[in-house]
């Protein structure tokens, strides 16, 4: 074959190829995945409700205290199931169903901490713990500040 000065592939070839891939690549089975996410997500919320009822029975708490306690309990459970090696298997099937609830947030922090445990406490666990959860925390804080400002300036 003759050598050419232009080994780059023209845009037309790239475009045609990317259209071919878009058309033929294996797709996620949407109905199955969404049903799975709905069921698992719902189940996690049911567990949350149950925890709330139990805490309500055991202690005398104001509604604000109660919701804070439930959140903490769910974070604990998310981390526990991550450490037991169950949450990743659940997530593989459930997708957003187990990522969206707060247990998923706990999983993203705990899994990063476990992963980087071998690089030591400072540069491993502490520095790397938020590599996955980082964006969520940043957006959460930014939006909270924005909401606070709106409340203070507009709604008074």
């Amino acid at each position: 074959m003759d050598k050419t000065d232009k080994p780059e592939y023209p845009e037309a070839v790239q475009k045609e190829y990317s259209e071919l891939i878009k058309k033929t690549e294996p797709k996620t089975p949407k109905t199955k995945t969404m049903l799975c996410a709905f069921a698992v997500g719902g189940l996690i919320c049911c567990v949350g409700e149950a925890v709330k009822d139990v805490l309500d029975k055991l202690f005398t708490l104001t509604p604000v205290q109660l919701s804070a306690f439930v959140t903490a309990a769910m974070i604990f459970l998310g981390s526990l199931f991550t450490a037991l090696g169950i949450y990743d298997k659940l997530g593989r099937k459930a997708g957003a169903g187990s990522i969206v609830p707060i247990t998923g947030f706990a999983n993203s922090v705990a899994s990063s901490a476990i992963e980087h445990n071998r690089e030591g406490v400072f540069f491993g666990i502490c520095a790397q713990m938020f590599t996955v959860a980082g964006p969520v925390i940043v957006f959460g804080i930014v939006l909270s500040v924005a909401a606070g400002l709106i409340k203070m300036l507009i709604l008074k």
Binding site: Y87, D88, G91, K93, N107, A110, I114, H116
Partner: peptide
């Protein structure tokens, strides 16, 4: 991602 992260492939 970390091994224990519950993401979908």
């Amino acid at each position: 991602y970390p091994l224990e992260l519950g993401n979908q492939r």
